[in-house]
Design a protein around this nucleic acid. Sequence first.
DNA 1: GTTCCAAGCGAACAGCGTTCGTGTCAAGAC
DNA 2: GTCTTGACACGAACGCTGTTCGCTTGGAAC
Lengths: 236, 236
Amino acid sequence: MRLRANVPAPRSLSRAAIVDAALKVLDREGLDALTMRRVAEELGTGPASLYAHVDHKDDLVAAVFDRVSGDIELPGTPDPARWQEQITELALGAIATFRQHRDLARAALGTIPTGDGSLSLMEAMVSILLAGGVDEQVTAWSLDLLALYITATAYEYSVETDAADTPHGAELVSQTTPDTELRAWFSSLPDDRYPHLVAMAGALTSGDGEQRTRFHLDVLVRGIASTVPARRRRRR
Amino acid sequence: MRLRANVPAPRSLSRAAIVDAALKVLDREGLDALTMRRVAEELGTGPASLYAHVDHKDDLVAAVFDRVSGDIELPGTPDPARWQEQITELALGAIATFRQHRDLARAALGTIPTGDGSLSLMEAMVSILLAGGVDEQVTAWSLDLLALYITATAYEYSVETDAADTPHGAELVSQTTPDTELRAWFSSLPDDRYPHLVAMAGALTSGDGEQRTRFHLDVLVRGIASTVPARRRRRR
DNA sequence: GTTCCAAGCGAACAGCGTTCGTGTCAAGAC
DNA sequence: GTCTTGACACGAACGCTGTTCGCTTGGAAC
């Protein structure tokens, strides 16, 4: 039988298709809307059908995260002379990639990554650091720090921009020039209790996400670089 | 009527009592078990009764977080010569305080803190940095970075230690010498794909949480210090 | 002594992750 | 060519969640 060959087979559910659908829901409505029921609906079925291909919801979310991690552009061969620039660019690329998928980064917090996408990113970072002459133990612990920063900052960044969607998010910061409002809020604090915060309201709220991220990465890379003994340094 | 006077007064619920009860539930069972029903049960009432004193669950969780933040030991007057040590000690104290309350730190991620406890911590950090001669804008952005690191690392740390409780947490890491298992897992990866990770299995899994945290803070503080021009530096 | 209003709370709603038991259909065995 | 098998699909349900609606009630104000 089976005249129509373009029908993707009656047993069309697959782990990959489920991850695709989940990613679609995530991009459209955010991580909180990524429920088993919504994903199933996206595939025209019920939630129970997903459990043949996915262990639990966390398993699905981890799969989505790893799929996105695979989209991060990895650098070519490490250049010892440019290790600081390379590690910065890689981190910026990773943050940008996560930010393209709403608050997905939240799912990575408090997780030991085991998928290929995450491991490839880690391998790339380690390669660059080692090529730069960074000590092996320092490299290992710096990897921790960089991974923590990348996921945490990608998440925080997403919260700022998605705030308008969330039910209670628009209390403090509205979408109309949020800096101004936040700055006014800092200025309005009792300055006998928080003299520096009030005085620094301008500095505390200046700069967009990218400027801040670049500064943060600069601090991290400088800190790591300061552990490299002078004789092992290739440049500067 | 009303013969029994030992009934704790009919109108006994208060915001402070609710926060206390929530903290008790959190410490005993973790953030996931901190539900409105469990808190109400702790107070011998129903969940609806809480909403007279608390706007939403997030409001309650934020109140708990801020209460704990108030327990962080703040340093005395900033000593310009010791600003690096002071900021490190303050951060370590904050992390330790959060870690005393399970995975509470998770609640702070992706949140702009507005309570007195958080603001006092921020004010203390800013005071130390400014006293150390750190530029105002650098201080503001460093505050971001330090706050992000403190909450994110306190959370990650808690996940590692609480893993035994969670339903699916014990898959990869058991409580018996977790380092060994994780190390073996790294070693078992395909070394044609992740040559450095496999080779560094030892370094990647060495050191307990405190050693790693001290290293991370050292990197952060060194990075911040490297922005201070030599003539403004007080020591070293 | 009456009125009033906010606190307390029982019941319910919509949604969640997950499981159970049944259905169904393609492929292998004879 | 028929029968059997077993993995996939899924409707229904369980126990849980945050939150809201209205009713009750008791103490303060007039």
